[in-house]
Computed example of a mutant assay.
Amino acid sequence: MAFEFELIATDGRARAGILHTPHGDIPTPCFAPVGTQATVKAVPPRDLTELNASLVLANTYHLHLRPGEDLVQQMGGLHEFMQWNGPILTDSGGFQVFSLTQINKIDDEGVTFRSHIDGSQRRLTPESSMAIQQALGADIIMAFDQCPPPKDRETVEKAVARTHNWAARCREAHPYDDKQALFGIVQGGIFQDLRAQSAEFIQSLDLKGYAIGGLAVGESKAEQYETLDFTLPLMPNNRPRYLMGVGDPDDLCEAITRGIDIFDCVIPTRLARHGAAFTFDGRINMKNARFKDDPNPLILDEAFKSYSQNFSRAYLRHLMIAKELLGYYLLSLNNIAFLITHVQNMRQAIIEGRLAEYTQTFLQRYLGRSQ
């Protein structure tokens, strides 16, 4: 089988595994950088390889609007188009439809919306989402779902029913072979009974993996963790579990401890564009005057590997103040490397049976000195 999930170690509810794909293995837990428009902002694929990235995301909605899935397919598919040889995951486009567009109509068949680029009217359905993702050629593709505000029960109930209907249609429209793995998405907001209903239905479709959607969209961290607590025990052990859109270092600790395998988030490159950098002593603002003559590298840890470590904090501050593009590149490298390293450290801790010790030490340092 081209897609197989191998569980190699557990520590409490946390898991270490390997997801085998046609474009290489994904050691889990893993953090996947987001390449919205077939590019991780400011970071070449060569550098992602050097940072040990094992999975990259691309965005169905954005690539459908520009340059179009037909062109990407003509150019050889996403791997050839963006010159990334590792595994790729594409989302369904649903989240962007609901968050970025002026929606004209949501119905049981799909969504009619206006493009945020040129205002043209478009239509997205489960079937068209599958067709777009198949043309893009990603290794892992996501079922089309409705992502509602997490605390509005009436809206969440309707979204869960629609998500189930759409997931079944995606399953029917997707040629289930070894070239692409279809993942389903469990919805239900912060409501335990709705999450249970959704987990049961989505699993009945017998998909290659399962995601938890509808979190990190307005609920508190405590509500997010509580939702994971009652949802994850309902999900199968022999399939990868993907928490969509979560990337804060402390959230990664909490979610991995509870049994999540795959993460993605735009946060490392978005923070870099605003001059913020991850360090083991908390997030720092590189525009701060106190770094003006600081000769140290960004991460004060000799074991941390990133090209950004060749430069002083003083130089990085200068680049950000001067709005030089190199600064955005170097901070993006640092932030992606930090999250990948953090998750890899947790994976090793799971294998060695010391996850609780690692997370306690990490969180005490990261949150205790956050700046």
Rank of each mutant, 00 (worst) to 15 (best):
A255V: 13
L205N: 08
C253D: 06
G184D: 05
Y176E: 02
K221D: 10
F280R: 10
F191G: 10
A181Y: 01
D264Q: 07
S220G: 12
Y176L: 03
L232M: 07
A196N: 02
G209Q: 06
L228T: 07
K221A: 11
K208E: 14
G184H: 03
I212C: 12
Y225A: 13
A222I: 14
P249R: 07
A181V: 05
E223I: 10
L243H: 08
T231S: 15
Q203H: 00
G218T: 13
C265Q: 03
I202K: 05
F201Y: 15
P268A: 13
A222R: 13
H174W: 14
H274G: 07
G275Q: 00
Q203I: 04
D193F: 02
D281V: 02
D193C: 02
D206S: 12
E219K: 11
G184Q: 05
E200L: 12
I185C: 13
F280H: 00
T227S: 14
D251Q: 14
D206R: 11
P249F: 03
Y242Q: 12
A276W: 11
D248I: 00
K179P: 00
D248L: 13
A173M: 05
G218L: 11
F201M: 08
I212N: 14
P240R: 09
M235V: 13
G213K: 12
V266I: 15
Y210S: 00
I262L: 15
L182Q: 10
A173F: 06
G247F: 03
Y176F: 01
I190N: 06
L234K: 11
L205S: 13
P236T: 10
G214D: 01
G213W: 12
Q197C: 05
A277C: 02
F183N: 09
Q187A: 12
N238I: 02
F201E: 07
F263G: 05
G247A: 03
L234M: 09
Q197I: 02
R195N: 09
I185Q: 12
R270G: 12
L207A: 11
T269F: 08
K179F: 01
R273C: 04
G247L: 05
E223W: 09
F183T: 13
F280D: 03
I260D: 11
H274S: 12
R270C: 09
R258D: 13
A272D: 10
L232T: 02
H274N: 14
L232Q: 06
E254D: 14
N237K: 14
D178E: 15
F191A: 05
A255R: 05
A255C: 12
D229Y: 05
Q203E: 02
I202F: 04
L234S: 04
A255D: 04
D281N: 12
R241W: 07
K208Y: 07
V186C: 07
Q192S: 10
Y225F: 15
A211L: 03
A216M: 09
